[in-house]
């Protein structure tokens, strides 16, 4: 029997498991990205606020402490593997939250994504011309009003490619959450492989499924991006996927010019 016939047989027999895995992966990746974005907006948005020189010293003090704490959060979660974060947080917080697997998974991925999003949002904000802030402030708007009404909408738009990329990263990286028994795609794949003993075939199918998900997502994000027709940006991104994507794009452009 050929390799592909085996693959087909596994798919026919185990598609409900694959399907369940896909559903869980997308659920965790999507909600993790959205909540991570919310967290990143809050953390990165406040990080980007520069207090007026005339602000009271107590406010300056609080901001300083906030900056240090948020810096630690961002560095820790960007500087350690998510698998370690998952294991640590799952067991460390289990006595407090007494949680089941899925909420724990979403929690871990949200916090992790939040750290990346905070930096994406902060540099998105910094890419906005200072004149926008000065105009708003000169009209009497407060720091907060300026941020919410003028700066953030533009920053989010500029940072959209990086934000979307985090979603794609999460689709792939949620696979490490199988370590805390979350029944996402990788977890399902492992148990299918375990019961069929056809490891190569099972993981081949799994790879194809991941690729389908990321490429579809990437396509959808590109369509949205086109609709927003914003300019290109260079914002921090959290892993190699983005880099290879950009590389491919650059290569394409390179080829086009010759």
């Amino acid at each position: 029997m050929g390799f592909f016939t085996d693959c087909a047989n596994i798919l026919i027999k185990y598609w409900p498991s694959f399907f369940l895995g896909i559903k869980t992966t997308l659920l965790i990746a999507f909600s993790g990205t959205i909540m991570g974005l919310a967290l990143g907006l809050l953390v990165g948005g406040i990080r980007a606020i520069k207090l007026d020189k005339t602000a009271p010293s107590s406010a300056k003090m609080i901001k300083k402490v906030y900056d240090i704490i948020s810096w630690i959060y961002i560095e820790v979660f960007r500087g350690t593997p998510m698998m370690v974060q998952a294991l640590f947080l799952f067991y460390a917080l289990r006595p407090i939250f007494n949680w089941t697997y899925i909420p724990a998974g979403i929690f871990v991925i949200s916090i992790n994504t939040g750290a990346y999003m905070a930096e994406i949002i902060r540099s998105g904000i910094q890419s906005i011309d200072i004149g926008q802030t000065e105009a708003a402030r000169s009209l009497g708007m407060s720091n907060m009003q300026t941020m919410i009404n003028v700066i953030l909408p533009q920053a989010i738009k500029n940072a959209f490619p990086s934000i979307g990329n985090e979603f794609i990263v999460n689709i792939k990286d949620s696979s490490v959450l199988m370590i805390i028994s979350i029944t996402e795609l990788m977890f399902q794949a492992k148990s299918i492989a375990g019961s069929t003993y056809k490891l190569t075939e099972t993981y081949f199918i799994t790879a194809c499924v991941y690729l389908c998900m990321t490429m579809t997502t990437s396509f959808i994000l590109n369509q949205i991006e086109k609709k927003m027709n914003h300019s290109k940006t260079t914002l921090p991104q959290s892993d190699t996927f983005a880099k290879t994507m950009n590389l491919a794009k650059e290569q394409e452009e390179h080829e086009r010019t010759y």
Binding site: D129, G131, Q132, R137, P153
Partner: peptide
Amino acid sequence: RAKVGMVFQQFNLFNN
């Protein structure tokens, strides 16, 4: 500031 308007060289209209 609300009582004192300012017009800038670079206009600084809100782009969004």
